[in-house]
C-alpha cells in the first residue's frame, strides 16, 4: 500500500503547486487542472485501500499520462515551471500507479491457486 500513500503525497504536492509555482491567475486552466488531477489521484488511491477495488489505482495511469502530455502542449522553448512540474509528477505517478496495492504479497491469482491446492491436499 506504500505506493498508494506516495500517490496521495504527490496529489497533495499537485494541489499545492499553483501556490508554490505562482501560477498565473490569467490562465485558470492550470489551477483547475491541478486541483482536478489531485482530487482524482486521491480518490483512486483511497478507493484502492478497499480490497474489492484494489485495482482502482490503475485509473491513475490516465491522469499520469494526461499530466505528462501537458508538457508537450507547447513549444519546447516555451516550457515553464508549471509544465515541467506536470511532466515530473506525471512520470512519477505513471511508475507508482502500476505498482499493485498489495504488492508485497503474492498476486491474488497465485493466492487463490495455493489455497485451492492446499484444500485438495488436505
Amino acid at each position: 500500500m506504500w505506493a498508494r500513500v506516495i500517490e496521495f503525497m504527490l496529489a497533495v504536492w499537485l494541489a499545492l503547486s499553483p501556490f508554490i509555482f505562482h501560477y498565473s491567475r490569467d490562465e485558470p486552466f492550470f489551477f483547475v487542472n491541478s486541483f482536478v488531477c489531485a482530487s482524482l489521484v486521491t480518490l483512486f488511491s483511497f478507493l484502492s485501500f478497499w480490497y474489492p477495488l484494489r485495482k482502482m489505482h490503475l485509473l491513475t495511469i490516465g491522469v499520469a499520462l494526461w499530466l505528462w502530455s501537458l508538457g508537450y502542449s507547447t513549444f519546447p522553448e516555451k516550457t515553464s515551471p508549471p509544465l515541467e512540474n506536470s511532466v515530473v509528477i506525471g512520470l512519477l505517478l505513471l511508475m507508482l500507479a502500476i505498482v499493485p496495492s498489495y504488492s508485497s504479497q503474492l498476486s491474488y491469482s497465485w493466492q487463490k491457486f495455493i489455497k485451492k491446492k492446499l484444500n485438495e491436499t488436505i
Binding site: W2, A3, V88, L91, L92, M95, L96, V99, P100, S103, S104, Q105, L106, S107, W110
Partner: peptide
Amino acid sequence: TAYLGDVIFALAGSTRRWQDR
C-alpha cells in the same frame, strides 16, 4: 526519475515475484 523507477520497482513485489509477477 529513471533511478527512482529502479527504487520503486525494486521494492514492489513478493520474495517470489520472479514467478508470481
